[in-house]
Design a binder for these strands. Structure first.
Lengths: 242, 242
DNA sequence: GAGGTTCGGTGGTCTATACCAGTATAGCGA
DNA sequence: TCGCTATACTGGTATAGACCACCGAACCTC
């Protein structure tokens, strides 16, 4: 039963509830889930409220709705990636460099607006902030600021992020597989903080990368902002027509 | 006044109406548009119906909503999808911007080393150099320097590259279809020349893109170096695991 | 002038209800 | 057997009204 006094809106609670059922495997891709009217009766909410939860989950790609037939768990998208999703560690290894990391900050915080939005998290949600200076061959290459959000995320505070890759920890200990990511790549001048961490000159250019990473169920669990030394790093991409 | 008998739903008609106002320039980016209550009264529909229109336009990115403040026309973001091979013209059109070009240089030259290598051309080969200032909505966005190399390339010297897309000309008149591309994206400070062409400040950052484009037979025919204004242009990429 | 408080307006949530539009099926009739 | 139709579902559209959370400005107090 969803409670009105609970600080989170009802439709949001229902979304979480449905998400969990899918994540837990109770409902599998292709399964039909209860109708709007069933859900509204079962959880004692109005149909319009149930609709909002279903609508949002559908636009997020987790559900598929068909008029006259019902609402179904969406099949996970199998896309042929032209570009491969990798973390910094694997990225550097592929380029033949020795990857490294220095943890600058690791704490539980309230997420800033952009991270909240990216992670589809409630405004008061606590997320783990992990800021690392990334090295290649012992030299600083990038500053990475990750915001992580999933059930039990606070356990991450005890992990060793200097000697283990974030993605490796997530997949081995938390059963989270980075599956898809959206990123935006732009250029900018370095901030004062970045200048010091990266040991570059004032006014030097950096490559900025904002990445939202999704797990095997299509849920965003990571929002990362990175700043790469422009003189030491380029993105490579292969494009195809159609 | 929106009509119920019209075959399209009311919220949809309102969406179209609002879209037109924005496209016509009646409302400009950053402008606050009428509130939900005003719209519902003005068009004689319920507030929930107006909300649906506004909600959908907001998720499409055309509007930005702020609780307690109002609904605003979103600032258009220029983003380049990294997985699909497009030219500047198509790229801008997809973002609802008016693309444009000013030809700065168009001549037959001996290619510089990097271009030669990329185009797999003989050292003494003549290539067409096409340098254009690329515009969006009348404002300079990028400087594009293309080196083109294929049989009969010199005929390109008589083409009109200010009013026609390069890729359009190549496919319609030369039967060359851009099929695959490899590109490297980095950040840098602008050169003196770029500073003047792009009308930006000295020491401003730019996004640099080096692209090798291959035709339908796998032959490289184009090597392009571009410099984008960092404050107006972002590359967008979708990555997938495996 | 600096600091609160009040108040009107905004979008956000939620209810209850009604009818429309597609889909599947069971059952009827030729 | 085939085809129709009635029916009972599904999601989609639309209404009217209520209250909440948030923002900003105007005002009031010290």
């Amino acid at each position: 039963m969803l409670s009105k006094n609970y600080p989170l809106p009802k439709y949001y609670q229902l979304k979480e509830l449905l998400r969990e059922k899918i994540a837990a495997g109770e409902w599998k891709p292709g399964d039909m889930i209860p109708s709007e009217r069933e859900l509204s009766e079962q959880y004692n909410i109005s149909r319009m409220t149930a609709r909002q939860a279903l609508r949002e989950l559908a636009t997020e790609g987790l559900l598929r709705r068909e008029q006259g037939r019902g609402t179904f768990v969406a099949e996970p998208k199998i896309e042929h990636g032209l570009t491969r999703l990798t973390g910094f560690t694997e990225d550097m290894q592929k380029r033949g460099m020795e990857p490294g990391a220095q943890v600058v900050r690791l704490e539980l915080v309230r997420a800033p607006f952009l991270a909240l939005q990216a992670l589809q998290a409630a405004p008061e949600a606590k997320v783990v902030l992990l800021e690392r200076l990334r090295l290649a061959g012992g030299e600083p290459i990038a500053v990475e600021t990750c915001y992580l959000h999933f059930n039990g995320v606070e356990k991450l505070l005890n992990e060793d992020f200097e000697n283990h890759s974030l993605y490796q920890i997530l997949s081995e200990k938390y059963q989270i597989s980075p599956t898809r990511a959206e990123q935006k790549i732009g250029a900018d001048l370095c901030s004062r903080r970045e200048q010091e961490l990266l040991n570059i000159e004032e006014g030097a250019p950096v490559l900025r990368n904002k990445r939202i990473t999704f797990d095997q169920w299509g849920q965003p669990f990571e929002y990362t902002e990175s700043a790469y030394r422009a003189d030491r790093y380029v993105f490579q991409a292969e494009l195809t027509a159609f």
